[in-house]
Design a protein around this nucleic acid. Structure first.
Length: 519
RNA sequence: GGCCCCAUCGUCUAGAGGCCUAGGACGCCGGCCUCUCACGCCGGUAACACGGGUUCGAAUCCCGUUGGGGCUACCA
């Protein structure tokens, strides 16, 4: 039994068996705790409430594409809801569309979720392995008269199935003998108003007259989404269905199915859709939108998770940066927006940058290593003897880096001597008319640095400023030249940090190299 | 086409009839800090889609228009 249960949370019904079992367990455990002394009566109600609430949610992606931002957000919200209520998060792969499903995609989805830190408690279950259940549910519907066989060919016109809606059993037998393939349709009742409460969109009604008799089992024997989703959610005891708002219009059908099966309808919460900058539904043509891409390229999973949490949800107190635990604490379905949200990569980048600059070097280490390996800059000693040094370099670079690959670009000179001088930087700090005096100054600096017994922040700065003064060079200008010598670039961390981090020997060598270059 | 949903700065959003001269964040622009670049800090830019009601009073409630989105598949 979970201890995180939140009795105040909600309104969702559960199946009767769960309710009673859970109630019993926590009642008994509390009873033992209090040793039957004075068992407070209100706790009895507490137990009952708590278990009525035993939340079970699921994320049910179809493996017809990568885990994209929208799916990830849906998964996140489900996960958050489960974690904060001490409920269960189930993962179910909806792969009943044989043609469009792909095993590689399944792997991608699993990896994406794992990367984001969204661990599931049960599953992954595959819908394709649950066909017996779906067919059994369909059979129940057929037997109770809620469904019928449609023998019409697909191309016979939009209403051809209606001819089979009220076939007598004798007529039906005839058709069956004919051996024609048939689909099974749900018999939508006429003139009814379906009602359900959506945690985001509020009370919702659907007129059955606006609904077709939808197919629940295709002629190839495979269930459609409507059937399988209801059958599975039912069988898995799902209490809260949290999914994209693209399903809102179809929810009437699902409610109808639950009612026809004489089962309790779960609580729904439909999430506003995530759109591209053109306000169209987010898709591949909007660029990088797959979670795997983010992982492989550049972004920190914490940043991605934090950013997508803000798509359609806000804390209400102006805060935007949350750790995983804070999110779990603060997340609240009632604060989910109804309006669709445009995905803004710029803000994601900002958040990523923020996360990078505020993460401890140890957290960044693996990602940076990967980037260095990609760029051929990795040396194994960086995870052995030189590891403390490696971490200090990360700390130096992390506030000025936009994304992970930048460590290998801005930071190149920390990991190899083989770098060239940036043209613009050279043009700015190694002007031709200054070169003679620069050569002298650099040479003196080099010699004095060589004689420095302790190569520290303070000493290197003191010496550099003295030399700059002596040759009547502006400190900034001189520093610029030294920076080019040491990093090849005009932008780098503070020069004395760079010097000390590089170490005396390296600095001397690099000064020599520049002196030769300007001569 | 039919049905449904949504509508606050360019973007994400706060706002549940007077607290709104509409708040925060990203972006953008300026400034400070400073050896560069970042970080940080300070300041600025910019919105209640439109039109009618209801009300003493509306971003908030109602209606219409417009715009956007979704569904309408033997896709999910």
């Amino acid at each position: 039994m979970t201890k995180r249960g939140k009795w105040a949370l909600g309104t969702g019904p559960t199946t009767k068996s769960q309710e009673h079992y859970g109630f019993l367990v926590s009642f008994v455990s509390l009873w033992l705790r209090f040793q039957s002394s004075q068992f407070p009566v209100f706790l009895l109600f507490y137990c009952f409430e708590m278990n009525t609430m035993s939340v079970r949610v699921r994320f049910a992606p179809s493996p017809t594409g990568h885990l994209h931002i929208g799916g990830a957000r849906t998964a996140l919200f489900n996960w958050l809801f489960a974690r904060q209520s001490g409920g269960t998060f189930v993962l179910r792969i909806e792969d009943t569309d044989q043609q469009r499903s792909d095993e590689e995609m399944v792997q991608g989805i699993l990896e994406g979720l794992t990367w984001l830190g969204l661990d599931w408690d049960e599953g992954p279950f595959f819908q394709s392995e649950r066909l017996d259940l779906h067919r059994a549910v369909c059979q129940r519907l057929l037997e109770t008269g809620w469904a019928y066989r449609d023998f019409s060919a697909r191309n016979e016109g939009p209403d051809s199935h209606r001819a089979f809606r009220d076939l007598s059993s004798i007529e039906m037998e005839e058709c069956l003998k004919g051996g024609d393939p048939f689909a099974i349709r749900f018999k939508v009742p006429e003139d009814q108003t379906i009602q359900f409460e959506d945690l985001v969109f509020g009370p919702t009604t659907v007129e059955t007259n606006n609904l077709e008799d939808f197919v629940i089992l295709r002629s190839d024997g495979y269930p459609t989404y409507h059937l399988s989703v209801v059958a599975d959610d039912l069988e898995m005891g799902i209490t809260h269905v949290i999914r994209g708002a693209d399903h809102l219009s179809n929810t009437g059908k699902h409610v109808l199915l639950y009612q026809a099966l004489d089962e309790v309808v779960p609580t729904y919460a439909h999430l506003p859709l995530i759109l591209g900058p053109d306000k169209k539904r987010l898709s591949k043509r909007h660029g990088a939108t797959s979670v795997t891409e983010y992982r492989d390229h550049v972004l920190l999973s914490e940043a991605v998770r934090n950013y997508i949490a803000l798509l359609g949800w806000s804390s209400g107190d102006d805060s935007e940066i949350f750790s995983s635990d804070e999110l779990i604490k603060k997340f609240n379905i009632s604060r989910i927006s109804k309006a669709n949200a445009v995905f803004d990569y710029t803000k994601l980048e900002w958040m990523n940058k923020r996360y990078i600059s505020s993460s401890p070097a140890e957290t960044l280490e693996a990602g940076v290593r990967e980037q260095l390996q990609k760029s051929g800059l990795w040396r194994s000693e960086l995870e052995e003897d030189a590891r403390p040094w490696f971490l200090s370099v990360i700390d130096l670079l992390k506030t000025r880096v936009q994304a992970l690959p930048d460590f290998a670009v801005y930071g190149k000179a920390f990991f190899t001597d083989d770098f060239s001088y940036d043209e613009a930087a050279a043009a700015k700090y190694l002007k031709a008319e200054q070169r003679p005096i620069l050569t002298e100054a650099l040479t003196e600096l080099r010699d004095r640095y060589e004689r420095l017994p302790d190569f520290t922040l303070e000493k290197t700065e003191e010496v550099l400023r003295e030399v700059a003064n002596k040759y009547e060079l502006k400190a900034g200008q001189f520093i610029g030249a030294v920076r080019v010598a040491c990093t090849g670039r005009a932008q780098a961390p503070g020069i004395f940090d760079v010097l000390v981090t590089l170490g005396q020997t390296n600095v001397l060598a690099r000064l020599d190299r520049l002196i030769q270059y300007v001569e």
